[in-house]
Each structure stands twice: as C-alpha cells, then as structure tokens.
Design a protein around this nucleic acid. Structure first.
Length: 299
DNA sequence: ATGCAGGAGAAAT
DNA sequence: ATTTCTCCTGCA
C-alpha cells in the first residue's frame, strides 16, 4: 500500500473535487490514468498527474481520503472531467454484474483493483493514440503523441499542448510524421488523416452506431485492425462490451484460463461470451492484474 | 546483442 | 482459413 506524501501538492489551493463520492487509491488512479487506456497523462508526483483533455490543461490529484481532485491552469471547469471519468456510469454495479462469482481469476483481479473504471475519451484522440500503439510500449506511445502535440497541436499551458486534429495531421507530409518516432505507423496515420478529411464525423459516429457497425467502420480504416478498433470503441466509444485482445490479455487467457493453443479470434470470442455485455471492463481488471504481476516480478 | 514491445496487412501456404 | 513475413524504433 502506497503512502501519501506529507504536504504534497494536493494540499495546495485551487483544487476542486471531481466528484464527492469518487474515491480511489493512488495505485488505482495510476492504473486508470497511466495504465494504457490513455496516453495523455504524466505523473508529476506520487499522486498527481498533468496532461490535456477536453481542450484544457489539467492537474489531477488525490486527497488524503482518496477524493479525486482537479484544477486547470487554462480555466477549464472540472465539471468537464465528470464526463471524461464517465461518472454517470456506475462501474461498481457493472463490476458486480461480471461473472466474478464463478471466476476466481477475475474475482482476484476485481479485489485487487477496487474502483477501476473505463474513461470516456475523445474518439478522434483515442484513434490517433492506438494507431501509434502497435508493438510499442506505453512510454514510447506517449513520446510519439507528445511530439505530435508539441509540433502540430494547440498550445495550452506551459509545456502542455493539445493533440492535433486529424484535419491538421492531414496537412502534414508523411515523411514529417515519420520524423516523430512513428516508424512504419506514419503511413497509416497519413492515410487515416486523408480518409477522415472526407468523413470528419466518423470518429464521433462510433458512439451512436451499434458495436458491430462501429467496429466495421473503424477496421475499414488503413492500419486499424480489430484490436485497435476495440480499444477505441471501449475507451472512447462507450462500447463496454468491446474486448480488445492484446498480448497481455492473450497471455492471461492462455495461462490462467487454460486456453493454451487458442488463436486470437477465438480468444476474443471467449472473452465476449464468458464476460458478457461489459467484457471490456473485465478485460481492464485482468490487464491491470497482469501488469501488476509483472511489476512485482521486476522488483 | 538479438529479441521483442499492448499490431496490421498482404502474401504464402 | 491459418501461418508467415514485413514494416520502424528503442529498450531490455
């Protein structure tokens, strides 16, 4: 269990609770903001984070009793973060509806990560982030996005910039995108930017379409396969049934669930069927638990 | 050092 | 309908 630092920045002025009933441990807040569903936040202390969301720069922190606090140097109203944190969604109830009673692996993960939730990110930003994510580690993805924001995005405050819009990216030559540590992903980014120039509302539309149609629309984009589509659908599209199968989840299913020689598409199908309509939330618990096991191994 | 890290797409079985 | 290869790059 982490110790709260005495006299940390969270005791300063200007902090507003994001929601009075919204309490988290430092570890769970870290998993939510810096565990791989978003790449927008950097730790600025043991319980404080800085970054951009919803067009504003923010500091997010945790009070001693676990209340999530926020303040914005650009004047953003913390009410904007109630939507970002999806506080209208009762994740405790959704978690209770998961099959943890008959699934000891899931039960243990749920026990270890109380309060874990799925953010409601901007679909256009999530698409860019996960398009950059293939065979990259979180720190590397964040570096690419930081370079994009710094060079092509709107300045918000200090060193914080917003991510560039797809319209802005469409005007950037591919070889210039490639100079920002994107590698072969530059071709996909340029192609998606060109495609979205004709369908600028595509990212937002995934929220109003049923899951299969929204997924088909995303996977039709160059460089977007099922895994990236499911990440965008889950973390920004409001489709909590989406079950992204990355190498972590594949390993969990193959070892803990004894599905050793199951191919990827079948693993995804298993996840959807076994975990049900909010399979994506189960995926997040299992992912956090797997990451924690690795972190403990490394120590 | 060589593999590999939260993949996708096309080619080759 | 699967499996293999290529695509960039930095970190272990």
């Amino acid at each position: 269990m982490e110790q709260l630092p005495v006299g940390n920045a969270v005791n300063g002025t200007g902090w507003t609770p994001v929601d009075l009933d919204f309490r988290l441990s430092p570890a769970v807040l870290a998993e939510i903001l810096d565990g791989g569903q978003t790449f927008a936040w950097d730790a600025t202390g043991t319980t404080t984070y800085g970054g951009a969301a919803r067009g504003h720069a923010w500091e997010i922190g945790l009070s001693a009793d676990g209340t999530v606090l926020a303040r914005s140097p650009t004047g953003g109203d913390p009410i904007l973060l109630t939507d970002y944190f999806a506080l209208d969604t009762d994740f405790a109830a959704l978690t209770d509806a998961l099959p943890w009673r008959s699934d000891p692996v899931l039960a243990k993960a749920v026990r270890q990560w109380p309060g874990l939730r799925i953010l409601r990110q901007d679909p256009a930003e999530a698409l860019l982030g996960f398009l950059c994510s293939s065979t990259k580690q979180i720190v590397q993805i964040k570096e690419i996005l930081r370079l994009f924001a710094r060079h092509f995005g709107k300045h918000l405050h200090g060193a914080t910039h917003a991510l560039p819009s797809w319209e802005t990216l469409a005007a950037v030559p591919e070889d210039e995108l490639r100079r920002h540590k994107t590698g072969y992903r530059a071709r996909y980014i340029a192609a998606v930017a060109r495609r979205l120039a004709d369908w600028p509302d595509l990212p937002l539309r995934i929220r109003s379409l049923p899951y299969p149609e929204a997924r088909a629309m995303l996977t039709d984009l160059p460089g977007v396969g099922g895994k990236i589509a499911d990440c965008v659908l889950l973390f920004a599209g409001g489709h909590l049934g989406a079950f992204p199968v990355d190498t972590w989840i594949a390993n969990v299913l193959r070892t803990e669930y004894h599905l050793a020689d199951w191919p990827l598409p079948q693993l995804r199908r298993f996840g959807e069927v076994h975990f049900g309509p909010h399979a994506g939330l189960a995926q997040q618990y299992l992912f956090a638990a797997a990451r924690r096991r690795r972190a403990l191994r490394v120590l």
